[in-house]
């Protein structure tokens, strides 16, 4: 119990984060691709592909953050102050892009400002999330169980690289989502964007995969010591194969598969990072066991997750099913 409960919770938080990254990733990606649309009608269509879903998608961010607080309060209490500025800037960017969904439709003269808020908010939120990820992976200074570093410790080239990587990755998710949900000029442009985006994302994944073991010994040991290397080698190999498949599907005009292949790339990339850091929740010092909440709290919430999360997934799937199919131009709001 003492041993595996925090491990189970580590997995649950990981799943919540990857759910968030994939689901909000494609609607943030729509925002990142927004400036490339030529006409207002195209932007309407793009936004309509995510309008019924974005709020539910973003709720996974609260489950990720709230779940971290529930299961690992000591990690939450270290990570949030350590990554203070990127977290707050991400939240403010999400404020802008979230209200833009509603304001844009009622604004008339000021509509282009809310277009800019939607695109800029999505871009800054995605970049900040990458910086947060990079800031966590590169490690946080901890003394006596509390954050003991400076306010700008996170600001490194590695974190910036992760930020750019997440922006490109979300744009790829958004483009492949548009292949499913639209046709005509919007879908054509999305397909044209998706191929260079895929190549750029693969380049970023390669750079991060080389940078982390070179810069951090603990990550090199995890991947390249024996016998780990034999068990872990499939992860990068499968990643390359999936990327090649996505490239093939994009070129052969498939509509659904590129999106799900891209989701696969995100899951594999996330798995790679999890392998690099486990069992540390706050690398390089605090593990899941050191930061765990009281056992009764983890058990209570585990029951909540076991019984309630399937229900949540069920009705989310139901709403995706109701709004299935291509978004027709002019099909509207309210």
């Amino acid at each position: 119990m003492e041993w595996y409960l925090p491990v189970i919770w580590g997995v649950i938080i990981g799943v919540a984060v990857i759910m968030y990254v994939v689901l909000d990733g494609f609607d943030l990606g729509i925002g990142i691709l927004f400036p490339f649309a030529k006409e207002e009608r195209e932007r309407d269509t793009m936004m309509n592909t995510v309008a019924p879903f974005w709020d539910g998608n973003e709720t996974w961010l609260i489950l990720g953050g709230g779940g971290l607080w529930v299961a690992f309060p000591k990690a939450y209490a270290v990570v949030m102050p350590a990554l203070y500025l990127p977290v707050i800037i991400m939240l403010l960017a999400l404020v802008f892009r979230g209200v833009a969904f509603e304001f844009r439709w009622v604004a008339m003269g000021s509509r282009r400002w809310w277009n800019a808020a939607f695109a800029g908010g999505s871009l800054v939120a995605a970049f900040s999330q990458g910086v947060i990820l990079g800031g966590l992976v590169q490690g946080i200074t901890v003394k006596n169980g509390a954050f003991a570093g400076g306010p700008l410790d996170w600001a490194t080239p590695f974190a910036a690289l992760c930020g750019i990587g997440v922006v490109l990755g979300y744009a790829l998710l958004g483009a492949t989502w548009l292949l499913i949900k639209t046709d005509g000029v919007v879908a054509e442009r999305a397909r044209a964007h998706a191929i260079p985006l895929l190549l750029a994302v693969m380049a970023m994944m390669a750079v991060v995969s080389l940078w982390t073991p070179i810069a951090f010994d603990r990550i090199a040991t995890r991947w390249f010591s024996r016998p780990n290397i034999f068990f872990l080698a499939p992860v990068p190999i499968v990643t390359v194969l999936v990327a090649l498949a996505v490239l093939h599907w994009l070129k052969s005009g498939r509509e659904m598969l590129p999106f799900f292949g891209t989701v696969g790339l995100f899951v594999l990339g996330f798995l790679g990072l999890a392998i690099s850091t486990f069992p540390y929740l706050v690398p390089p010092s605090l593990t899941v066991w050191q930061t765990a909440a009281a056992a009764p709290s983890q058990i209570l919430m585990l029951f909540g997750v076991i019984f309630l999360l399937p229900v949540v997934l069920g009705y989310m799937a139901f709403v995706y099913w109701i709004f299935r199919g291509k978004v027709r131009e002019g099909e509207g709001y309210h």
Partner: peptide, 25 residues
Amino acid sequence: GSVVAPLIGFEVLTAFFLEATFLGI
């Protein structure tokens, strides 16, 4: 964390997802 956070966790699971998802409909 061990006392108040689970209450917020249940808020996410029983309220936020419900509101946000059915809001779409």
